[in-house]
Amino acid sequence: MLDVEDVWFQRVAGIQPSDPLPETVETDRDTIRAHWDKVEKKSALILLLYKMTN
């Protein structure tokens, strides 16, 4: 579920989706927050690139 937004933005941008957060990773709050921070940064970059090219 954590990776849905990440995959969607990557597909919109024509990028091969990255690997999801492994199920074997301990999903404590800090791990989830760190992963989500990366997702938010990638999503913001994709939106910025889209805005610059359209």
Rank of each mutant, 00 (worst) to 15 (best):
L2Q: 12
L2G: 09
D3S: 11
V4Y: 02
V4Q: 04
E5R: 11
D6K: 02
D6F: 03
D6G: 00
V7D: 08
W8S: 07
W8F: 05
F9N: 08
F9V: 13
Q10S: 06
Q10H: 01
Q10I: 00
Q10K: 09
Q10R: 06
R11M: 09
R11A: 03
V12E: 09
V12L: 05
V12T: 08
V12W: 05
A13G: 06
A13F: 04
A13W: 03
A13E: 02
G14P: 14
G14A: 03
G14E: 10
G14R: 04
G14W: 05
I15N: 01
I15Y: 12
I15V: 10
Q16M: 04
P17C: 02
P17F: 04
S18D: 08
D19M: 13
D19F: 12
P20H: 03
P20A: 06
P20Y: 02
L21C: 01
L21S: 03
P22D: 08
P22F: 00
P22T: 10
P22L: 09
P22N: 07
E23A: 12
E23C: 03
T24S: 11
T24Y: 07
V25L: 07
V25W: 09
V25S: 07
V25R: 13
V25Q: 06
E26P: 00
E26V: 04
T27I: 14
T27R: 15
D28E: 11
D28V: 02
R29W: 10
R29I: 07
D30T: 05
D30V: 13
D30G: 08
T31A: 14
T31C: 15
T31S: 12
I32A: 07
I32M: 02
I32Y: 06
I32K: 03
I32L: 09
I32Q: 01
R33G: 05
R33F: 11
A34E: 08
A34M: 02
A34D: 07
H35P: 08
H35E: 13
H35Y: 15
W36K: 14
W36H: 09
K38C: 10
V39S: 01
V39R: 11
V39I: 10
E40D: 15
E40L: 14
K41T: 14
K41I: 01
K41C: 04
K41Q: 15
S43Q: 06
S43A: 15
S43L: 06
S43W: 04
A44T: 04
A44H: 06
L45C: 08
L45K: 15
I46C: 00
I46S: 04
I46G: 00
I46V: 13
L47G: 06
L47P: 05
L48R: 15
L48Y: 14
Y50K: 10
K51T: 12
K51I: 02
K51F: 07
K51C: 01
K51E: 01
M52I: 00
M52P: 00
T53H: 11
N54W: 13
